[in-house]
Nucleic acid binder design. Structure first.
Lengths: 190, 190
DNA sequence: ACAAAAACGGAGCCTACCTCCGTTTCCCGG
DNA sequence: CCGGGAAACGGAGGTAGGCTCCGTTTTTGT
C-alpha cells in the first residue's frame, strides 16, 4: 500500500536508498530525530548530495521510515480486530502503538504532526492507521467496556501524550507505560 | 525564594539582564524555545556576547524564565490548598499548570526535563512546585475523591503528557484541554 | 578625577544545512 | 562487446546560527 515506486530506477540508486534508510533508522535511534544528516550519509557510504537527492528534506527521510511503521500498525490492528475480544484488542493495539512511537527521541512529535496536517505525504498511511484505531475503539465502546463519549481524536491525543511523556521521563522504565495506560483505560472504561 | 542574587552587580549589568529576560520571554512565545538567540540579543539592544555572559547556554536562559513560573505555580498551589476543597483545589491547580506550561511551543519539554534530572539548576524550584502538587494530590486522595494508588510521579507524567499533546495538536482549542483533563480525572477518581 | 574592575560587543571560528554542477556509473541499442 | 546518452554520484562551497575570545567602554570607589 506504500512503496508503489515503479522499478524505473537505476540499480545503484535503489541500493543507496536502502542503505540510507537503514543507517537513518539506526542513527535516529541513537541520537534522536535531529541527528546529523551528514553523519547518516557518511555511515551509509554515500555523499551528502546523494542523501539530499533521495530525501530532499529531513521530513522526507523521517516520513519514509514512519510510513512503514504506520502500515505495520494498521496490519496489526486488522489482525487484532479479527482475532481478539474488543477490549483486549484495543489495549493490546495501544501498547503496540506506544512502543512503535517510542523507538527514538523526537519520533512522537513527528507522529503527532500528520494527525492534523493534511498536506503531509504521510497523511494517507496515517489516516489508514487511525481508522483501524478508531474501529478498535468503536468496537470496545459497542461492547460496553469503554465509555461512549470519547472521540477517536481525543483518544489519540491522550495516547500520544502518554507515549511522549514516557519517551521524555523514563526511557528505561518499561513497566511505567503499562501502569500509565492502565490508569488511562480506567478513565475510559464506563 | 528565587532571585537570591546579591546586589553586587553593576547597574548596567542588571538592566541588561532584565531586558534580555523580557525579550526572551516574548521571542520564545512567538517562535518557540528554539528561537534565534542572536535575535533576542538584538531585540534587547545588546551584543550577542552580553547575552552569553549572562546566560551561558540556552538552557540557562530558559531556566531563568521557568524558575519564575514554577515559583508562581507553587504560590498558587499554596493558596488553593488553604482556600478550596480538596478535589477542586487539585483540578484547578492542574489547569493552571497546563496553562503555564503551554505558553510557548517547546516549553513542555523543558518542564519535563528537571522532573527527573537532579543536576538541573531548576531542580530546587521544580521540587518545591512538585511538593505542592503532591500535597494537593494527597489531600484529594485522603478526602476519598481520588484513588489512592496513583503516585505523584505518575500524576505529573500524565498531566505533562496532556499538556504536551495539547501544545502539539490544538494550540487553538481551549475547550479541548478541559475535556482531556476531565477524562483523565475520571480515571483518577475512585 | 583617576585607576581598577566589571561589563560590553562583535569579529571570527565552528558545525550543520543545503545547492549546484563537473564527474562517474549504469544500461540499452547496435 | 562497445559506445553514447541519461541517470546518479559526490563534495566543494555558500548560508545561518551557536558560541568564544579579547580589545574597548562604562561604572564605581576613593
Amino acid at each position: 500500500m506504500h512503496e508503489a515506486k515503479g522499478p524505473s530506477r537505476r540499480a545503484d540508486a535503489r541500493r543507496n536508498r536502502e542503505r540510507l534508510l537503514a543507517e537513518a533508522q539506526t542513527t535516529f535511534a541513537e541520537h534522536g530525530t535531529r541527528a546529523s544528516l551528514e553523519q547518516i550519509a557518511t555511515r551509509a557510504g554515500v555523499g551528502i548530495g546523494t542523501l539530499y537527492r533521495h530525501f530532499p528534506t529531513r521530513q522526507d527521510l523521517l516520513e519514509a521510515l514512519l510510513g512503514a511503521r504506520f502500515d505495520t500498525l494498521t496490519a496489526t490492528g486488522r489482525t487484532l480486530l479479527a482475532t481478539r475480544p474488543p477490549e483486549a484488542a484495543l489495549t493490546e493495539w495501544t501498547h503496540a502503538f506506544v512502543t512503535a512511537t517510542t523507538t527514538f527521541r523526537g519520533l512522537t512529535a513527528e507522529v503527532a504532526r500528520p494527525l492534523d496536517d493534511e498536506t503531509t505525504r504521510l497523511h494517507a498511511s496515517c489516516t489508514a492507521m487511525r481508522e483501524v484505531g478508531a474501529e478498535l475503539l468503536r468496537r470496545a465502546q459497542e461492547s460496553g467496556t469503554v465509555r461512549a463519549d470519547v472521540s477517536p481524536a481525543d483518544f489519540f491525543v491522550l495516547v500520544t501524550g502518554v507515549a511522549w511523556a514516557h519517551e521524555q521521563c523514563a526511557p528505561d522504565a518499561p513497566e511505567r507505560v503499562a501502569r500509565l495506560l492502565d490508569l488511562l483505560f480506567d478513565g475510559l472504561r464506563r
